[in-house]
Design a binder for these strands. Structure first.
Lengths: 229, 229
DNA sequence: CTCAATTTTTGGAGAGGTTGCAAACTTTAA
DNA sequence: TTAAAGTTTGCAACCTCTCCAAAAATTGAG
C-alpha cells in the first residue's frame, strides 16, 4: 500500500510491449504523486493536506493529479483493486483438492508468517491506520473496499463451485472469511502498534486465527473442496 | 428511515420538559428538510440534487440545512444512530436466560414477521437501496454504518458478558451477527423488489436465516447466555 | 533531423459541498 | 415590554472535482 515491491520492469523479454520512455515516466509520475501524498497525509492528517499542496510538492499541476487519481482518497488507497481481488485470487489458484476456505485462510497464515503488510504487520502500518481512523472519508472508503472484497469473493465462490443462484451459503461464507481476515490483521496491527515483537505478534495472530477457525463450522471450513478446474 | 413513526409528541405528562413551540418548530423544520431531500434523491438520484435545491424546496437557506445536517449524506441517512444501536439494544433488553445471539436473531425474526423496514421489507425500500447503490458516497456511508453497528455490538457483548479484553470471540460473534442480519435483509429487499408477496418474502427470509443459523456454531448461538443484570 | 500524429500536461473557468462569522430575526421568560 | 437566548440568513471564502481548449512533450516515419 505504501511503497516497496513494484519494480517489475525487469520483465523485458516476456509477453509485454517494448515499454518506452513514455510509459515509464508516467509510472514514475504516478508513484511520485502517490508517495508524496501519502507522506503528507501520514504527517499532518488527511484533511489538513490539500490537493493543491500535493500537486505543488510533486511539481505538477492539480489537473495532473486528477489525471492519475479519480479522487483524493485514491491517493491514499492506491492498489485498491489488488486488495479487493486478493482472496479471490487465492481461491482461484488454490491447489487441487484444497477447500476454498482453506485457501483464503492459508494465504492469511502465509502473510502472517512473512510479516506481510497484508496481515497488518509492517513498520508504520499502525500510523497508516491511525490516519484512516481519524479521517471519516478514509474510513468509509475502507469499509467499502471490504464490502467489495466480500462481494468479489462471493462471485468467485459461485464460479468455482457452480452453486445455485439462490443458494445463500456462499454469500455467508465469503462474508465470514473476509471478516476473519480483517479481525486477525486488525489484531496484529494493534499488537504491532503496542510494540510487540514480530514473533509475538505472529504467534498471537495465528492463535486467534485458530480460535476463529474452531468457531466456524465444518460447513465453512470445507466449503468448496471441489478441485480448481 | 424514510418516514412513519415519529409522532411521539403524545409523551406529554411523562418525564420530559414542557416541549415549547420552539422545539416543535425545530423538529418540524428538520423533518421537512429531510423528507424533501429524500424525495428528491429518490426521484432524481443523489448526485443530481444539490443542497441549494433542497434548501430552496424546503424554503430555508442553505445554512439552515447545514444547521441540522452535518453533511449531504446525512440528509439521506437520517436516524443513523438508531440503526447502529438497534442490535445492541436487543441484547441489553433481552429476557433473562436468553443468549445474546438469540436476542439479535430473534429481533430479526420479529422484524421479518412484521414486514418491518428493518428487514428490508417495506414498499419503496428497494428504490431507497437502488439510490444508495448508484451513489458511491452513500454506499460508503452505509458500509461505515454497518461497521459501527458491529463495533457497538461488540462493546455491548463485552459489557454484558464481562469477557476478557483479549478474548477475540466477542469480536467475531458481533461481526457475524451483523453480517447475518444484513444478508437476510438484503435478500428480502431483493425478493420484494422482484415482486414477491410479503408472505413469500417472509418465508424465504426466515428460511435463509435458519440456514445461516445452522451454519453457525453452537459457540455462536449460545454466546452470552448469562442473564441480563 | 524534421514533421505530423498522439499523448500528457497545464491553465482557466466554474459548479457544488462545507465552514465561519456577524447581522437580523424570533421566541422565551421575566 | 424588554432583555436574553436561540435560530435563520447572507456573505465570503476554501476545497474538491470537472470540462475544455491551448501548450508542451514524445513518438514514429520519412
Amino acid at each position: 500500500m505504501t511503497s516497496t515491491a513494484d519494480e517489475q520492469q525487469a520483465a523485458h523479454g516476456s509477453g509485454g510491449k517494448p515499454e518506452g520512455r513514455r510509459e515509464r515516466k508516467k509510472r514514475e509520475t504516478r508513484r511520485r504523486i502517490s508517495d508524496i501524498a501519502t507522506g503528507l497525509f501520514l504527517q499532518r492528517g488527511f484533511d489538513a493536506v490539500t490537493v493543491a499542496e500535493i500537486a505543488e510538492a510533486a511539481d505538477v499541476s492539480v489537473n495532473t493529479v486528477y489525471n492519475y487519481f479519480p479522487a483524493k482518497e485514491d491517493l491514499f488507497f492506491d492498489r485498491e483493486e489488488e486488495m479487493i481481488d486478493r482472496p479471490s485470487v487465492a481461491v482461484r489458484e488454490r491447489e487441487p483438492g484444497r477447500s476454498a476456505a482453506d485457501a483464503v485462510l492459508g494465504q492469511l497464515r502465509q502473510d502472517i508468517s512473512e510479516h506481510s503488510l497484508y496481515a497488518g504487520m509492517r513498520e508504520g502500518f499502525d500510523e497508516f491506520m491511525r490516519c484512516v481512523r481519524e479521517a471519516p472519508p478514509l474510513m468509509s472508503r475502507l469499509m467499502l473496499m471490504q464490502h467489495k472484497t466480500a462481494q468479489r469473493l462471493y462471485e468467485t465462490l459461485v464460479e468455482e463451485t457452480g452453486a445455485a443462484s439462490d443458494d445463500p451459503v456462499p454469500e455467508l461464507v465469503a462474508a465470514e472469511l473476509v471478516n476473519i481476515c480483517n479481525l486477525v490483521s486488525r489484531g496484529a496491527t494493534r499488537a504491532t502498534a503496542e510494540g510487540a515483537s514480530h514473533e509475538q505478534v505472529a504467534r498471537q495472530a495465528l492463535a486467534r486465527l485458530d480460535t476463529f477457525e474452531k468457531l466456524a463450522t465444518d460447513e465453512l471450513l470445507k466449503y468448496a473442496t471441489k478441485p480448481a478446474r
